[in-house]
Computed example of a mutant assay.
Amino acid sequence: MATGPRRTGGFRVTAKKLTTSAMIASFADPGQRTTKAPFGHALTRLAEQRPEIVGLSADLAKYTDMHVFRDAHPDRFFQLGMAEQAMLGAAAGLAEVGLVPFASTYSVFATRRAYDFLCLDIAEPGLNVNVVGGLPGLTTGYGPSHQATEDLAILRGLPGLTIVDPCDSVDIEQAVPALAAAPGPTYLRLLRGAVPTVLDEYDYRFELGKTAELRTGRDVLMISTGLMTMRALTAAKELEADHVDVAVLHVPTIKPLDREAILRHAKPDRLVVTLENHTVVGGLAESVASCLAFAGAGTRIVPVALPDEFLAAGALPTLHERYGLSVPQIKSTVLKELS
């Protein structure tokens, strides 16, 4: 019999054995290099240098990699149970007395359920609280109750909030200390478990609020964020066989957006494609489009994003193919636009 949809812990229970479910399925490609729990280990290392770092969880420490911090610093970890609003309120109180909280839960609960607490308890007073949201976008097969496909749209309008959507383990490890050092509230779209390691091959350094040109190309510019940057890099390499030269601009910080870099790279002589693990409404595509429109740039952009609908449940590879996030679908979109 399956466990309930709210707190499964990532397992399906049967009369005979436990088997891993779609809840915490990995999106890593077969044979891809991965790093285990990069967020948990990065936070633990940071806490060894900064005694004011504390961690909070809403009954999901193991499934947001906060358990690594909990085990290393049990006296600085707070378990709030199934109460996301209370967790963010407690994090605000801890920040008020000079501590630097990292509060972790699933993205759907941090954004849909606890938005008012994030807004008025944390963002309005400008507190240094770092909200860590697991299972962002289409990174779980559990359906609309757990797929945070609209979290960026919900949070982009919140004044003073920094939003980071990391590509891989390298991004996460470098982003954690940067977020702790940021003066106001932050939201991190967490990739958890065995996270692919990609950006170390591109001489990459995370810089809050800045983009990174990972690849140059004359025909197409891919502007990507989150896990879609690793898909963009793979698609760009494979498109060489079709004699298509693709540049990749990684956007790890959604807010504040590096508008100057986007305007510099998005020129009318190249096809501009945005790629994001988020609904086409209110995320990277619309951020880039508004950036270009407000500057008077007439560049057309093609979005690769999730549709404006509630998504199906199922296996992640099947869902990514169905909703256009797979490498073959990205290549097909580019070739169709160039034909």
Rank of each mutant, 00 (worst) to 15 (best):
G184S: 03
L239D: 14
P252G: 10
P166E: 04
L257N: 06
A236F: 12
A180M: 14
D168I: 09
R218V: 03
E213L: 15
M222Y: 03
A212G: 01
I223T: 13
I223M: 12
D203F: 00
D171H: 06
P256S: 00
L239H: 10
K255I: 05
Y187T: 06
E201T: 10
G226F: 04
D168V: 05
G184P: 03
A182V: 01
D258K: 07
A232D: 06
V251P: 06
V195M: 07
P177C: 09
A194F: 09
I254V: 14
G226M: 09
R231N: 09
V170C: 10
P185K: 01
R231I: 08
I262D: 07
G157N: 08
K237N: 12
T229G: 00
V246K: 12
D258V: 11
I262V: 15
R189C: 04
R218Y: 03
L188Y: 07
M228T: 02
V176T: 14
E207L: 15
V176P: 15
R205V: 14
P159I: 02
V246R: 11
G193P: 02
L199W: 10
D242L: 04
L227Y: 05
D258A: 09
G157L: 07
M228I: 04
T211L: 00
V195Y: 06
R259W: 00
A178R: 14
L208V: 02
E260Y: 03
T216M: 08
D219I: 10
G160A: 07
A261R: 13
V246W: 15
I223S: 14
E213D: 04
A181S: 14
L191Y: 07
T229I: 01
L208Q: 04
L208A: 05
E260V: 07
G157S: 10
A175E: 13
T197N: 15
D168E: 10
L221C: 10
D200W: 08
V164A: 11
G209T: 08
A266N: 09
T216K: 15
M228P: 02
L249Q: 06
V246I: 11
T162K: 00
L263Q: 05
C167H: 11
G193N: 07
D245W: 12
A261K: 06
I163Q: 01
A194C: 05
G226I: 07
C167A: 15
P252D: 04
D203A: 03
R231E: 03
E207K: 13
G217R: 15
D200A: 05
C167V: 12
R205C: 06
R264P: 08
K237W: 05
L214P: 09
D165Y: 05
S224P: 01
V170W: 12
P196Y: 02
A235P: 09
L179W: 05
A178D: 09
L249H: 01
D200H: 12
P252T: 10
V246P: 12
H250Y: 04
R189M: 03
P185A: 06
A261W: 01
A261S: 13
Q174D: 02
L249F: 00
G226Y: 07
A212D: 07
L199M: 14
M222G: 04
V170I: 13
